[in-house]
C-alpha cells in the first residue's frame, strides 16, 4: 500500500428517495471526508440515483468472517415461524 497515492477507501451509501434506507452501492478513494463525499457524488449520483449520501471509512466497518457462517446464520434456517407468513398484511404496507 505504500505506493498507493489515491487515498483511503470509503464505502458509499445512497438513498434513492426520502424515507428509504441508504443502500450500499460501492466505494471510492479519498484523502479526507469532504473529498470522499464529493467523489461519491460524482461517481454514484450522476444519473439521478439519489437524494442523500453517506460515506464511511471502510476501515470503520466491522464485518463478520466466513468462519462465522455456521454459528451466525445457520441457526435461522429452521425457524420459519420468524417469517411474517402466518398472518395477512394490510395492503397499505408495501416495504416489508
Amino acid at each position: 500500500m505504500s505506493n498507493d497515492t489515491q487515498g483511503a477507501l470509503w464505502e458509499v451509501f445512497v438513498q434513492t428517495k426520502p424515507g428509504q434506507p441508504h443502500k450500499h452501492c460501492g466505494s471510492v478513494h479519498a484523502h479526507d471526508k469532504e473529498m470522499a463525499l464529493q467523489n461519491a457524488r460524482d461517481l454514484y449520483t450522476r444519473r439521478n440515483e439519489g437524494t442523500s449520501l453517506w460515506v464511511i471509512p471502510s476501515s470503520q466497518i466491522i464485518s463478520s468472517s466466513p468462519e462465522d457462517l455456521g454459528a451466525f446464520f445457520e441457526p435461522a434456517n429452521d425457524k420459519i415461524f420468524r417469517h411474517p407468513t402466518f398472518y395477512v398484511l394490510p395492503k397499505e404496507i408495501t416495504h416489508m
Binding site: 487515498g7 478513494h29 461517481l43
Partner: peptide, 11 residues
C-alpha cells in the same frame, strides 16, 4: 490523477 477526479472533471 485518480479515477474519481477523472470523472469529477469530466462531469
Amino acid at each position: 490523477p485518480v479515477l474519481e477526479e477523472d470523472l469529477a472533471l469530466t462531469n
